[in-house]
């Protein structure tokens, strides 16, 4: 019973991991930028959710009306900057790391380093759940899973069915050739940066729903989120979703049957194995790349 419950909540929490990882994966795969600042955007998204919900007494989910456009602009601006600088893959990592530590410090200066948590009257979701017999579906993770599914489905359809999507896949494969066929790489990548920023707003909102915030949380996401990106296959949105679920289930089950302390051990050992057996990612099959 415990294992079933752990599998279930793990899979649902995997939605949050996927939501955090999707943007990172796409910018890496399509634009060749390892954007650590994405973690900063998620953090700001979470704090904005907290702030807007608390001061305007808005339902936390409705704060997306504010945070999504704000993060879209922020994401697009960062992408515009990266484009101007023409960075290599690894230098993009360093520049975005610089941006990340700036973001964390700014967050700390604005909201203090102490824990921030939406109080129970503002955020009714935190403790709610849907029960199915003994099995329970926490509402926050249902929201995470649902949003992740929407984002993934949307991204998949856009990339497959629209001109912009096909153009992006072309960029991912060969930027020069795509340019020769009239794909405006600059404008598209800024657009993509904006969309990725918007997903950071979603992830931030979901995180704030069920967690206390401190500026330092951003670092704690690194391990799991990168694991999801790699397992899913860089640039593979659908793969990211599957990998998120897998990571959630794996750590949930290991925590339940062995020990929470063993979860990272099993998870990261599994990642090394996966990398060796399928270096292109476990779920890499016809995504953006």
């Amino acid at each position: 019973m415990n294992v079933i419950q752990a599998t279930l909540t793990g899979a649902l929490i995997g939605g949050l991991y996927a939501l955090m990882a999707a943007g990172l994966s796409v910018t890496w795969g399509v634009l060749r930028i390892i954007n650590l600042a994405h973690f900063g955007l998620i953090l700001i998204g979470a704090y904005l959710t907290f702030q807007v919900a608390t001061s305007w007494h808005l339902d936390p989910v409705l704060t997306l009306v504010v945070t999504v456009p704000a993060m879209f602009v922020a994401g697009a601006a960062i992408q515009w900057l990266f484009d101007r600088l023409r960075l290599t893959e690894f230098n993009s990592l360093l520049v975005s790391f610089g941006l990340l530590i700036i973001t964390i410090q700014v967050t700390s200066n604005i909201w203090s380093a102490d824990f921030r948590r939406m109080s129970a009257d503002v955020n009714p979701y935190a403790t709610q759940s849907v029960a199915l017999g003994r099995l329970v579906f926490p509402v926050t993770t249902l929201v995470a899973f649902g949003l992740a599914a929407l984002v993934v489905l949307g991204a998949h359809l856009v990339l497959r069915r629209t001109f912009a999507g096909r153009a992006m896949r072309a960029i991912a494969q060969d930027r020069a050739v795509a340019g020769a066929f009239g794909v405006d790489h600059r404008r598209l990548s800024v657009l993509l940066g904006g969309v990725v920023g918007a997903t950071a707003a979603l992830a931030g909102m979901v995180f704030a729903l069920s967690n206390a915030l401190t500026p330092d949380t951003a670092y704690e996401w690194f391990g799991t989120v990168f694991a999801v990106v790699i397992l899913g296959g860089i640039g593979e949105v659908v793969g990211t979703f599957a990998a998120g679920i897998l990571v959630g289930v794996l750590s949930g089950v290991v925590s339940a049957v062995w020990s929470p302390a063993a979860a990272p051990f099993v998870l990261f050992s599994a990642i090394i194995l996966a990398l060796l057996l399928r270096p292109q990612g476990l779920f890499a099959a016809g995504g953006v790349r």
């Binding site: 890496w28 390892i34 893959e89 690194f222 391990g223 990168f226 694991a227 790699i230 860089i234 020990s259 302390a261 063993a262 979860a263 990272p264 051990f265 998870l267 990261f268 050992s269 990642i271 090394i272 990398l275 060796l276 270096p279």
Partner: peptide, 28 residues
């Protein structure tokens, strides 16, 4: 390096995983 020519970013993330595993090992 078993794979001969491993992609750079995969190597990077593989090495990222090692300290996590060691830390967890020490905690277990």
């Amino acid at each position: 390096f078993r794979l001969g020519s491993l992609r750079g970013e995969i190597f990077a993330l593989l090495t990222l995983a090692v300290p996590f595993i060691l830390a967890a090992f020490a905690r277990i």
